[in-house]
Amino acid sequence: MDTSCQTRWDRLSRTYDWVTWGDDQRFAEAKSRLFAKMSGNCLMVAAGTGNDFHHFPRGLTITAIDISTGMIERARPRALEYLGQLDLRVMDVQALEFPDQTFDTVATACTFCSVPDPLLGLRELHRCLKPGGHILMFEHVRSRFGPIALLQDLMTPAFRWMGPDMNRDTVGNVLRAGFEVLHEDNIYVDVVKAVEARRPPCETTKE
């Protein structure tokens, strides 16, 4: 477990709901649309304070993980409100404790801007997804528009102490981890995206 990352998010958990209020309001519709595609046995990575749980379809079996104990404690009341089965666990996405091919769907929301080694985390998710399983990601990435990308590059060192990198090529990392990208929708300019990818169904024959 990355303890420096854990400590940072424990600290941020105290103000997280307040800091993200505006984003939660503005992206609610897009998140609900994306997470409506969740099905089967689901994994939610970086549950945070559980402020995305109300976007999940009812009646699912969901395991929600977060590296921060503080976040998980704050997520507990929201997990109890979910109309289905939602279990919370403290876990690092870079070292998942689940067996291979456990989940049908993985959901993430603003997660891979903060995972120290995003490719390692995505490969772990790839391992734990069943072949043909989907990963639904609501993430912010580096813009392809030069003036905005330059700003993101300049701002990343300033924001890193807080947690997220502003300029990651998360969609590229998804491909490098072995997923197929099915949809990549721009939610706010080309910085905030909803990405739907899957573990190729025929991959088991290669392994």
């Binding site: 912010h140 700003l151 706010y188």
Partner: peptide
């Protein structure tokens, strides 16, 4: 203002206005 307006909706135009 970012807690009110949202970090990304503020960061993109705000940083363009500030820097450029």
């Amino acid at each position: 203002l970012s807690p009110l307006l949202g970090f990304f909706h503020l960061m993109v135009p705000g940083s363009l206005v500030g820097m450029y």
